[in-house]
Amino acid sequence: MHRTIFDTPIVNTTLRGISLAFLKVTGWKIEGSLPAGVTKCVVIAAPHTSNWDLPYTLMVAYVLRLQIYWMGKSSIFSFPFGPLMRWLGGIAVNRSQASNLVDSCAQELVKADGAVHLVVPPEGTRSKTRYWKTGFYYIALQAQVPIVMAYMDYSRKLSGLGPLFYPTGDIEKDMVAIKAFYAPFKGKNADQFETPPENP
Rank of each mutant, 00 (worst) to 15 (best):
M1E: 11
M1L: 10
R3K: 12
T4W: 04
T8W: 04
T8I: 07
P9F: 03
P9L: 04
P9S: 02
T14N: 03
T14H: 02
L15V: 12
I18F: 06
I18R: 09
F22Q: 01
G27F: 07
W28E: 00
W28T: 00
I30A: 11
S33T: 15
K40N: 03
K40T: 02
K40M: 03
V42L: 13
V42R: 12
V43A: 12
V43E: 10
I44D: 02
P47A: 07
P47Q: 05
P47N: 07
H48E: 10
T49E: 04
S50A: 05
S50L: 02
N51P: 05
N51G: 08
W52P: 02
W52Y: 12
D53E: 08
D53C: 09
D53I: 12
L54C: 02
P55E: 12
Y56M: 15
Y56C: 09
Y56T: 09
M59T: 14
M59V: 15
V60R: 01
V60K: 01
V60C: 08
A61S: 15
R65I: 09
L66A: 06
Q67H: 13
Y69R: 15
M71E: 00
M71W: 00
K73G: 15
S74K: 13
I76Q: 06
P80I: 11
P80A: 10
G82M: 10
G82A: 15
L84H: 05
R86A: 10
W87F: 04
W87G: 00
L88G: 00
G89Y: 05
G89W: 02
I91P: 06
A92F: 00
V93C: 09
S96A: 07
S96H: 06
Q97W: 03
Q97D: 09
N100L: 08
L101S: 14
L101F: 07
V102T: 10
Q107E: 15
E108D: 14
L109W: 02
L109G: 01
V110L: 11
A112V: 03
D113I: 05
D113K: 14
D113C: 03
G114W: 01
H117P: 03
L118R: 06
L118H: 09
V119W: 13
V120I: 15
P122Q: 07
E123K: 09
G124Y: 01
T125C: 08
R126M: 04
R126F: 00
R126S: 03
S127R: 13
K128L: 12
K128G: 07
Y131T: 06
W132F: 15
I139T: 01
A143H: 04
P146S: 08
Y151T: 02
Y151Q: 10
M152A: 11
Y154F: 12
R156V: 07
S159A: 15
S159V: 02
G160L: 12
L161H: 01
L161Q: 01
L164W: 08
F165T: 05
T168Q: 00
D170E: 15
I171K: 03
E172T: 08
E172L: 10
E172F: 01
E172G: 13
M175A: 04
V176S: 07
V176M: 09
K179S: 11
F181W: 15
Y182M: 08
Y182A: 08
A183E: 11
F185Y: 15
G187D: 12
K188H: 14
K188Y: 14
Q192P: 00
Q192G: 05
Q192W: 10
Q192A: 12
T195S: 04
T195N: 05
P196F: 13
P197D: 15
N199A: 08
